[in-house]
């Protein structure tokens, strides 16, 4: 397997991790919004920020893949 292939697998693993993370954030945010519809705006903002933080980790993986590609 070439180094590029390994990098691609690494990027994929990072994407899985981020997918799980963002999925959990989204699910919990939905649940919270359903429970407290009046907090809708605040929950959405925090969920977006948290998703951005989680996503950043996956993007580091993508960047590593770019470094090899």
């Amino acid at each position: 397997m070439t180094i590029t292939g390994i990098a691609a697998i690494g990027a994929g693993l990072a994407a899985i991790g981020a997918g799980v993370g963002i999925g959990r954030i989204g699910g919990s945010a939905m649940e919270a919004m359903a429970r407290q519809p009046e907090m809708h705006g605040k929950i959405q903002t925090s969920a977006l920020i948290l998703a951005a933080f989680v996503e950043a980790v996956a993007l580091f993986g993508v960047v590593v893949a770019f470094l090899q590609g």
Binding site: F53, E55, A56, L59, F60, V62, V63
Partner: peptide, 9 residues
């Protein structure tokens, strides 16, 4: 991370 996030997205 700000830099990477925007660039990579």
């Amino acid at each position: 991370s700000l830099m990477i996030r925007l660039f990579a997205n």
